[in-house]
């Protein structure tokens, strides 16, 4: 279950209630970002960040470094095989 889609925070619409506009491929939706903001850090600083959105809530940050690492591992699988054969 649990459709979750990566999107980018483009605007803070209501800092008090942790609401932000998130862009998914040109489609925008107001989303609650309470679960991904740290206390004390101004909401504005999250603009531009990628988050995983589920039913109108940003539930996690997307970690670019880890994404690259995962893809790198897949790439290396191939190299390893070419090496072996």
């Amino acid at each position: 279950m649990c459709l979750g889609i990566p999107g980018r925070i483009v605007e803070i619409t209501d800092a008090e209630n942790s609401m932000a506009l998130v862009d998914v491929s040109g489609v925008r939706r107001e989303v609650n970002i309470l679960c991904v903001v740290e206390e004390g850090k101004p909401a504005q600083e999250y603009i531009g960040e990628w988050v995983l959105v589920h039913v109108g809530f940003a539930m996690s940050h997307l970690d670019e470094e880890e994404a690259r690492h995962t893809l790198q591992l897949l790439e290396e699988l191939g190299e390893l095989q070419e090496h072996l054969s």
């Binding site: 990566p6 990628w50 994404a67 897949l74 699988l77 191939g78």
Partner: peptide, 23 residues
């Protein structure tokens, strides 16, 4: 789409598939 399309790449799929078969 970032974080989506890269994870649907057919070339990498082939590599992973070969690895699965080998294992």
């Amino acid at each position: 789409m970032k974080y989506v399309d890269e994870f649907r790449d057919p070339d990498k799929a082939r590599k992973a598939q070969q690895q699965i078969h080998r294992l």
